[in-house]
């Protein structure tokens, strides 16, 4: 089991607020890794640091052995490390199929390719993936007209269209109708298993993450609090305290 992402002693402060304080973690290849923590514990900041939205103050981030903490967003994305957003982001004035087509992998794109048409098999793949997330019947609609949950599914499908090596999901079930959550978890699992995508998931919904993840990291107040299997995390005193707002201590 090799580590796909190696985060080592990463710190990030905004002004005087320390959002991440010497965080170290590893995301193993082919698994689903969870990241939990109370609001404001620095989860999204860590995601943003990994995918290159802002520079980190210190530490190192390695993706498949390559130091990426200096790279910018598009370059990291082209390496195969992708993220979805908490507030869903799609190209809202284009239809779903076009949203999918433009999301193909740009890794080996040459200049001249800008002026080429998409091959038909790509459209087919886009439609298959839309079918996979259950949006096939909506494929010709302007994506901005979809409901929030459908947009979330579309964003997920777009990410899969890119064939990433690793996908960072920021609260995939937030704002989704509870009856649809099981379907979504099932699709996340299948994506991991069938398409070989490693997943790194921020999630607030405890049953979901316990069900989905192979191992879980817990952050609190910008620090790494605990790490372990879902069972270990569930029974960890410090995690429970952090969530209930009790007095917890960090073993230094």
């Amino acid at each position: 089991m090799t580590a796909m992402i190696e985060v080592k002693d990463v710190s990030k402060a905004f002004g005087g607020i320390i959002a991440n304080d010497k965080i170290s973690l590893e995301v193993p290849e082919g698994r689903v890794t969870g990241l939990i923590g109370p609001n404001g514990s620095g989860k999204t900041t860590l995601f943003n640091s990994i995918v290159g939205y802002h520079p980190i103050d210190e530490g190192s981030i390695k993706f498949e052995g390559v130091e990426i903490s200096d790279f910018r967003v598009p370059k990291i994305a082209r390496l195969g490390l992708l993220r979805t957003f908490q507030q869903t982001r799609i190209y809202s004035k284009m239809n779903c199929v076009n949203n999918m087509l433009i999301s193909v992998n740009h890794r080996s794109e040459r200049f001249i390719d800008l002026f080429r048409d998409y091959p038909p098999e790509l459209t087919e793949k886009a439609e298959q993936l839309l079918d996979f997330v259950g949006l096939y019947s909506k494929r010709k609609l302007i994506s901005g007209d979809l409901s929030f949950g459908q947009q979330k599914l579309l964003e997920f499908a777009m990410a899969l269209m890119n064939e990433p090596r690793l996908l960072l999901l920021d609260e995939p079930t937030a704002g989704i109708n509870p009856t649809l959550i099981n379907g979504l978890i099932d699709r996340l699992r299948r994506a991991a298993a069938e398409m070989g995508v490693t997943l790194f998931v921020i999630e607030h919904n405890m049953p979901v993450i316990m069900n989905l993840a192979d191992s879980i990291y817990c952050l609190a107040n910008g620090r790494l609090l605990a790490h372990g299997s879902p069972d270990e995390i569930q029974s960890d005193e410090r995690v429970i305290n952090a969530y209930l707002g009790g007095h917890y201590t960090v073993d230094d």
């Binding site: 967003v73 809202s92 433009i102 890794r107 800008l114 777009m158």
Partner: peptide, 25 residues
Amino acid sequence: SGRFGLAANAIRDDEEKAEGMGIRT
């Protein structure tokens, strides 16, 4: 009519997302 058009529209709709998806904006 080709990829350029979609890439341009993607930049118009959400450039940050386009960068996040690896488009050479």
